[in-house]
Design a protein around this nucleic acid. Sequence first.
DNA 1: CCGCTGACTGGGA
DNA 2: TTCCCAGCCAGCG
Length: 108
Amino acid sequence: MTVTTTLFDPLDAIVWQLLATIPSGRVITYGALAKLAGYPSHARYVGRILKNLPKQTTLPWHRVVNARGELSFAVDSQRYLRQKALLESEGVIFNGHKIALRQYRWHG
DNA sequence: CCGCTGACTGGGA
DNA sequence: TTCCCAGCCAGCG
């Protein structure tokens, strides 16, 4: 039987699982997520994974921000505003375009 | 195989 | 501190 056909990459599944563990009100960077998944130099790939998530996903994709504490979308674009709104609804504070970081990261 | 494009980064200026 | 940029790496002609 042929078969096989991996419907998705193993890394994708790992990232999905890690993403699911990030608490409301907290954020994590693309790079940190990649590192936790075991692929420290794949921040961009993590971005691609998020981009490929189905629209109806329940995963907290909005809790992933870039290393500068900003959202990786064109400022004021539709997607930018949506992510910002979701984060603010969880209590994340913004200072201009940047997240008023207190604690980045999950767990801690 | 080549070149270009990103939901990215670290480090030098 | 902010800006800039080479390096990064999978996907898609």
